[in-house]
Design a protein around this nucleic acid. Structure first.
Length: 557
RNA sequence: GUCCCAGUAGCUCAGCAGGAUAGAGCAACAGCCUUCUAAGCUGUGGGUCGGGAGUUCGAAUCUCUCCUGGGACACCA
């Protein structure tokens, strides 16, 4: 806990103490203490609504209760300067802010570690995200999910969760047959058999055409002369290898690493799918109807039952997915987070039903839904890529606006609102662009530090930090102190955009401070040293926060 | 028809395990560079929190209902 968290804890403890001493309620009657930072500075540094919450229990008017609490409150415990009662019964605490300067040595010492917390308490979490079928190139929609999942993983790790990042490779099932046939067709076409037909549900994208041409160049007509079966089989592997490699590369370029690339076909090889089916059957959740095998998901709040084995004997896509999730739990995760596109939300009830049928709690599977992205250029929605006429790819987007902007914009907004991605804004080098705004704050600090160094000044915790006391400085310190709690909150609520918002706020405080106070001042050497330590603490915090969302913190702009 | 997400300032969005006068950016208007990067700062104006009802000391936040926009509703993945 940093000094801010400690102080808040002390105040909370004291409130409970005071309530008990005033005989307003017994300790186990007291609701959880809510200590908030009021929007209005006139309402103090902290406020609690305890008096209102106790009105019913103590059977007294809130303002009377507030009086009793304050009368029994030991002000000497925290750095409290003054306590006021206001409004319907709020108790407002005014603190002597000098204690906040203790944050500076803490941050300078912690460096990259600053912000770490234990909200997650070591809970084992798996985040599965992107997991696009290896039948093509990653597109715009995948990009938001990739950035969301990666940022969330970073934040949860920082908040004390034990996080594993996983990509599920759908390398079995019908879509792979389609891919194999599509590659085959494009290969044969590349060899001159222009009338070789694409499968009905084939992948008509330009990427598969290129893939066929590449194969023709590498192998000539070798596979044209093999049996169809052998040729299709080769095409399947060739296509999969190529497309998966490209997916991996695209994600790497987006600064999105994975711990595990989990293959669907490995579930079949290890008999996991059959085992899952056997298990469900033993539990009595399966039945036959119309020649198919059904799973009674309606026992678990789904609107209708689902087919697991089709009339033709093939599995539906739900079947290996059940085995997959069973396998995830067998690997020891407490909670699974799946990041899905909005078009899959209808799939949630049946997946949760499966989790329960497998003997786990539906709450152990969380689904984060990523809403649609609209690209906006020149005030209009960009429907298709100019280059290919197809959906805009992940790579194209990053080439167009820069990766920092892409990452920032994707975690700037809540994942469950539709996102209008304004490409003109993302590329504009002006104060309208929030990416530049926050990066500029970091570069500005670095610039000051460079100039100080030329004068022989380095940030150090040995500076006289009691000189830090102007309003803008205190605002900065308060903001720095919030950081671990922002991370904890963002992690617990699975809302990475809160961190982005924090970054913006901290940058804003820094710019405001910069314009109000001079850091390097030859006439006030001691103050300069103290402020250098302060801005170094800001730099460290900014840099740590930006790293969580995968945006670079430049030293110069 | 059923389900999910959204509806908050002119625009894009925060806030939604109930709290004080609903916030930020952009746009508009008025200022700030002999001073560490003006990619910055300061100030002003701007709101029936989609409509209605309910729960209570108190609702943008919880419940119900209706309206609007988007998406999903396969023995496809």
């Amino acid at each position: 806990m940093n000094i801010v968290e400690q102080t808040e804890q002390k105040i909370k403890d004291e409130i409970v103490e005071a309530v008990v001493k005033a005989e307003l309620a017994t300790e186990d009657q007291i609701p959880e203490v809510v200590l908030e930072t009021p929007k209005e500075k006139a309402h103090g540094d902290y406020a609690t609504n305890m008096a209102m919450q106790l009105a019913r229990i103590a059977k007294k008017a809130p303002r009377q209760i507030a009086d009793d609490i304050v009368a029994n409150f030991d002000q000497s415990k925290a750095s409290i300067k003054n306590i006021e009662i206001a409004g319907p019964g709020f108790i407002n605490f005014f603190l002597d802010s000098t204690y906040l300067t203790e944050l500076i040595p803490t941050i300078l010492k912690d460096q990259q570690e600053y912000g770490k917390g234990n909200a997650g308490n070591g809970e084992k979490i798996q985040i599965e995200f992107v997991s696009a079928n290896p039948t093509g190139t990653l597109h715009l929609g995948h990009a938001r999910g990739a950035v969301f999942g990666d940022s969330l993983a970073n934040i949860m790790e920082k908040a004390g969760y034990d996080v594993q990042r996983e990509y599920y490779i759908n390398d079995a099932g019908n879509q792979m047959n389609n891919l194999a046939k599509s590659v085959e067709a494009r290969y044969m076409q590349a060899l001159g058999q222009t009338d070789f037909e694409m499968p009905e549900d084939g992948y008509h994208g330009k990427d598969i055409v290129e893939l066929g041409e590449k194969m023709a160049k590498e192998y000539g007509d070798k596979w044209a002369n093999e049996s169809e079966e052998a040729r299709v089989e080769f095409c399947r592997q060739y296509g999969l290898d190529f497309l998966l490699d490209r997916i991996k590369k695209d994600l790497e370029d987006y600064r999105v690493p994975f711990d595990e690339w989990f293959s669907e076909s490995s579930l079949y090889e290890e008999g996991k799918v059959q085992q899952a089916l056997d298990y469900l059957k033993e539990q009595g959740y399966l039945y036959e109807k119309d020649g198919a095998v059904w799973f009674r998901t309606t026992d678990f709040n789904d609107d209708k039952d689902r087919v697991l084995i089709k009339k033709d004997g093939n599995y539906t896509y739900l079947t290996p997915d059940i085995a997959y999730h069973q396998n995830k739990f067998e690997r020891g995760f407490d909670t699974l987070i799946n990041v899905w596109g909005a078009d899959h939300h209808g799939y949630i009830p049946r997946m949760k039903a499966a989790i329960e049928a497998l003997g786990y709690n539906a709450k152990q599977l969380e689904i984060s839904i990523i809403q649609m992205v609209n690209l906006i250029q020149g005030g209009e929605i960009v429907k298709m890529s100019k280059r290919t006429g197809k959906a805009v790819t992940m790579v194209e987007l990053a080439e167009e606006v820069g990766l920092d902007a892409v990452r920032y914009f994707f975690v700037m907004r809540s994942n469950d609102t539709h996102l209008d991605f304004d490409m003109d804004l993302a590329t504009s080098e002006s104060n309208e662009n929030p990416v530049y705004y926050v990066q500029y704050a970091h570069a500005r600090i670095c610039s000051m530090l460079r100039q100080a160094k030329e004068k022989g000044l380095e940030p150090s915790e040995d500076a006289d930090l009691t000189l830090i006391q102007s309003e803008k400085e205190i605002d900065l310190l308060k903001r720095l102190g919030e950081f671990p709690q922002v991370i904890g909150d963002s992690a617990v609520k699975r809302t990475p955009h809160r961190v982005t918002q924090y970054i913006y706020d901290l940058a804003s405080d820094l710019h405001s401070f910069y314009n109000a106070e001079k850091v390097i001042n030859d006439d006030q050497l001691e103050l300069s040293k103290a402020r250098l330590a302060l801005i170094e603490a800001v730099r460290i915090t900014l840099s740590n926060a930006m790293k969580l969302i995968g945006v670079h913190a430049p030293e110069k702009m």
